[in-house]
């Protein structure tokens, strides 16, 4: 114990000094990061205190601190779990979120690896640029397109007919919703999402490919042994970050895809929060429901990071 204390006294001041020295040495980088840190602090950390209204009977005049505490504190949470639709909404949220992650996470990686294998420079650039375009289309336009494509006379049904299948109203019910939702998310995000992987791939030491060629490696082997290991750390971090937002799906898109044949089947926590908060004006209640969602997301990020740390400690976030 005494030894430990002596060690702290001897080492700690030195490490603090070295910390500040290091900070000073890297002052340009620190300055570069400062605006982002301030921005995140102001807009992401300070508002966190607002979650208190989940436990309060929020009154705008009294403010967050001055409003009365609910009795019991978890009243809003019990109201949600007692809601006849809560189980279905939670299940829908997981289903849509997981399906989206399952398809939107690997596709940019695959796309980037394929682009990396293209030799024709002009063709490669054209494909790459064209793939970014869907990212810039507004979600309202996307949903209107989906509504048109999924109608009885729409493009999706033209394809079905070409394949010998019967025409169906794909906008009716929830049978085709997931495919349309996930498919359009992949279409919109595959090009844009590949940018970060292409940037990582541009750092591959070309001599590795030369060596692989001499050794007679085929394309597949080069992808597996050179390209993939290069982007793996990036992919791992993106995966952990995506898991954190997996349940915060694009609720605008779901709202726009809902109609009188599928509304309850498509309801997720975000649309429920919108309904209760914005439409019905129950802010404390909707904050509580969203807090529940955030807690689950946090647990997911924590678990994913833990798994990654066990499997590949170098690539975990902490």
């Amino acid at each position: 114990m005494k030894k430990q204390k002596k060690w702290n006294e001897a080492v700690a001041p030195a490490s603090i000094n070295s910390f500040w020295k290091q900070l000073y040495r890297q002052r340009q980088l620190v300055l570069l990061a400062l605006p982002a840190v301030i921005l995140v602090f102001i807009f992401k950390y300070i508002p966190i205190y607002g979650i208190l209204i989940s436990f309060k009977d929020f009154n705008a005049a009294k403010g967050v601190w001055g409003s009365e505490w609910l009795n019991p504190l978890w009243k809003n949470f019990t109201t949600f779990f007692k809601n006849v639709n809560s189980q279905k909404i939670i299940w829908n949220t997981f289903k849509v979120g997981m399906m989206t992650l399952l398809f939107t996470f690997p596709t940019p990686i695959i796309f980037a690896l394929l682009l990396n294998e293209l030799k024709g420079k002009w063709y490669k650039k054209t494909v790459q640029t064209v793939s970014y375009i869907p990212h810039f289309i507004s979600i309202v336009v996307i949903c209107s397109m989906l509504n048109g494509f999924g109608s009885m006379t729409g493009m999706f049904n033209d394809v079905r007919e070409f394949l010998g299948m019967a025409r169906v109203n794909m906008n009716s019910g929830s049978a085709y919703f997931l495919w349309e939702y996930v498919g359009s998310a992949v279409w919109q995000g595959v090009g844009w999402g590949s940018i970060i992987y292409l940037a990582a791939l541009s750092n591959v030491d070309t001599s590795l490919y030369d060596v692989a060629n001499i050794d007679g490696a085929n394309r597949w082997q080069k992808i597996i042994h050179i390209a993939w290991p290069t982007i793996k750390p990036t992919a791992t971090i993106i995966l952990i970050m995506n898991v954190g937002t997996v349940l915060n799906m694009d609720f605008t898109k779901i709202l726009l895809m809902q109609n009188d044949t599928n509304r309850s089947a498509l309801d997720v926590i975000s649309t429920f929060v919108y309904q209760k908060g914005i439409v019905e004006g129950k802010f404390s209640y909707s904050t509580a429901v969203n807090l529940f969602l955030s807690a689950v997301c946090f647990a997911l990020v924590f678990s994913t990071n833990m798994i990654v740390r066990k499997m590949d400690p170098e690539n975990s976030l902490w």
Binding site: S144, N147, G148, S151, M152, N169, N171, S172, N259, D260, T261
Partner: peptide, 11 residues
């Protein structure tokens, strides 16, 4: 029309 509940304003 079977699409009476699914066609948006544009459609």
């Amino acid at each position: 029309d079977p699409e009476f509940a699914t066609a948006d304003t544009n459609a």
